[in-house]
Design a protein around this nucleic acid. Structure first.
Ligand SMILES: [Mn+2]
Ligand SMILES: [Mn+2]
Ligand SMILES: [Zn+2]
Ligand SMILES: [Zn+2]
Lengths: 140, 140
DNA sequence: ACTTGCAATGAAAAAGATTCTCATCATCAT
DNA sequence: ATGATGATGAGAATCTTTTTCATTGCAAGT
């Protein structure tokens, strides 16, 4: 994942794009909002306008470099497209996100779409619950 | 689904609440946004403030009368809780929504959550694609 | 039916997320 | 190096949803 990926997407290789891509690549939190990216870059001394963050993230999404998720909470989160597709599990208390992939579910989805005359293009499976952290369990 | 359901939720039986519940019950389109509800009621001559629509829908959700979905598009959609849980398939062209339920997927989700130490509270599975309508197929 | 407390409503303002506008600036093919 | 074109930043605008607050209406008790 480097500047060539930006170029291959038909986009000019600019400092904002390089910095945003680097952050998505190196940040410990894989799933970040546009606001998150903005603030994290600010913390690193990179003053990139929020409008640019939104623009670039959308361009990266179109280029297939980044995936956008509509978790609960009223704002989108983005993640760098590494390996391949996967689904998510979100802790309703601490916000922790775990990733998983299940071939049984993936297969059934394709079958179900077909049964309904749909051509599946994409899908979103999110499990909401309480993660393993004791503080996130009910009654804590 | 009647006024008693509103009362049982600990809410006063008011005209806005009755009208919103009636609309959710009788409307052909099961999945509607707050704005949709607002406009549809206006068309019927019921002038209920948009803020009230949002408030009441959220209250109905809390009471378990209504479910909120975060489909793509930047706004939430609501549906009356009839039978039980089900998942959704959304046409990316015409917006048509089909409902389905699959026990294999439901079971695997519970297993996967457990494998990751999560207590599953809820989940959201949405298949995006092109519906059976020829006009919604690629290359039309 | 009459009172009355407290919840509910409408209108407008506010808030939060995202997009758009436009003047200025940077990239890159030539 | 130059110039065409795309990219950026700042702020305005838009869209969705929530909040505020003065007014109204339900419903419990008389
Ligand atoms: Mn992920
Ligand atoms: Mn449904
Ligand atoms: Zn947690
Ligand atoms: Zn369609």
């Amino acid at each position: 994942m480097d500047n060539q990926d930006i170029r291959k997407a038909g986009l000019k290789v600019t400092l904002p794009r390089i910095k945003i891509l680097e952050l998505l690549e190196n940040n410990t939190q894989r799933h970040v909002s546009a606001e998150d990216v903005y603030k994290m870059l600010l913390d690193k001394g990179e003053e990139i306008g929020l409008a640019t963050i939104y623009r670039v993230l959308t361009q990266f999404e179109t280029a297939g470099l980044v995936t956008r998720h509509n978790f609960e909470g009223g704002h989108a989160v983005f993640e760098l497209d590494r390996g391949g597709h996967h689904d998510h599990m979100v802790c309703m208390v601490c916000g922790k996100v775990e990733e998983f992939i299940d071939t049984t579910i993936e297969k059934r989805q394709r079958e179900i779409a077909k049964e309904h005359g749909f051509e599946m293009v994409d899908h979103s499976l999110i499990i909401y619950g309480h993660c393993g952290n004791p503080k996130c369990k009910v009654g804590y």
